[in-house]
Nucleic acid binder design. Structure first.
Length: 193
DNA sequence: ATATGGATGGCCT
DNA sequence: GGCCATCCATATG
């Protein structure tokens, strides 16, 4: 996929609007963050390949799943050239299909439809993504977990600092669909000029 | 062999 | 706004 060929900060906004699909559950990507190997101390790949981050050095379209805070999973789409160590963290989805199942997985009443995928840990729980999915090929037609790249026209996008990191906090590599009610947190609107 | 600190979420005030 | 549950990859001795 050409959209994933470049560095993470270029690929990330191009993923907004794409569909992440796990079995019958589908969601539209509304918020992402970019992570690069070089000059990005917040990235898992910053210190080079390890057993944990090995998937980050795979081909574009590979899924990188890791555990955070001992209890949540987070999912990334690998981008850039093979061995580049770049990836895009999926931070929020607009739930589209399989919403009832998502609610059950999230331990919510099936009648509640809000905040099902409004956070990187939440969306993994809602879609049933865990460590077993690490390294999956998101473009394999036979895969249970797939990414459908959007061919929609560019949307209005806001960007700002990434969330929850303590290093390389200056990089404005969080991108979100402006005004979406499905974001994990609000993004400050970009100044028009 | 041990220490440290997270790319979080839920519940509380 | 704050707190805390709970794990493990990584760094260091």
């Amino acid at each position: 996929m050409d959209a994933l060929a470049g560095p993470a900060n270029e690929a990330a906004p191009l993923l907004l609007g794409s569909i992440l699909e796990v079995g019958p559950c589908r969601g539209r990507i509304v918020e992402v963050e970019a992570y690069e190997q070089f000059d990005d101390e917040a990235s898992h790949s910053f210190r080079g390949p390890t057993q944990r981050n090995a998937a980050m050095f795979g081909k574009p379209g590979t899924l990188y799943v890791y555990r955070i805070y001992g209890m949540h999973w987070c999912a990334n789409v690998v981008c850039g050239p093979v061995d580049h160590g770049a990836a895009v963290l999926i931070r929020a989805l607009e739930p589209l299909d399989g919403i009832k199942q998502m609610a059950v997985r999230r331990g919510r009443d099936p009648s509640q439809v809000t905040d099902l995928c409004s956070g990187p840990g939440k969306l993994c729980q809602a879609l049933g993504i865990d460590g077993d999915s690490n390294g999956a090929d998101l473009f394999s037609p036979t895969s249970n977990i797939r990414l459908e790249m959007s061919d929609a026209v560019p949307q209005t996008i806001d960007h700002g600092p990434r969330i929850g990191i303590s290093r390389s906090i200056d990089l404005p590599w969080r991108f979100g669909h402006r005004g979406s009610p499905h974001l994990s947190r609000r993004l400050q609107e970009q100044i028009e000029r």
